[in-house]
């Protein structure tokens, strides 16, 4: 049947009996993730303010949790899990590649402009 759903999340760790049950399960998961984000955002634990790869660990955690949320919204709410591999890759990889490319270029350029302002309009004195 065309409407058969895959009812496992977390790589088969959690299995649901029906699609409706899976939806509620995913909602609970997304709510927990959002709650963690908000709590971390309000309290900002001291230990997570250290820098890692040029950004605070806390910010990395936020970004990773966001991607996790995006994954479950796309895979379970938008039923990407049930689409063919070809459609899935066509949509997801195209978007991911172009977005990463754009982010890299713009953030790199933003950092460069910051340095130019900061160091008296000279970036590198050869």
């Amino acid at each position: 049947m065309a409407h058969a759903h895959k009812l496992e999340i977390f790589r088969g760790l959690v299995k649901f009996k029906s699609n409706t049950q899976k939806i509620w399960g995913v909602l609970i998961f997304l709510t927990i993730v959002t709650a963690i984000e908000v709590v971390l955002g309000i309290y900002k634990p001291e230990g997570l303010l250290a820098k890692f790869l040029g950004m605070k660990i806390l910010n990395w955690i936020f970004i990773i949790l966001t991607i996790v949320k995006a994954y479950y919204i796309t895979w379970d709410f938008m039923h990407m899990r049930d689409e063919t591999k070809a459609l899935r890759r066509m949509v997801v990889w195209t978007a991911i590649f172009l977005i990463l490319y754009l982010i890299f270029i713009l953030l790199q350029e933003g950092g460069y402009v910051f340095d130019v302002y900061k160091d008296g309009f000279v970036k590198r004195d050869f």
Binding site: I99, L102, I103, L106, L107, E109, G110, G111, V113, F114
Partner: peptide, 14 residues
Amino acid sequence: SGFLAAYGFSRFKF
């Protein structure tokens, strides 16, 4: 993403 990346650009700039 264009908008958010532009936001990131301005933020990195300042």
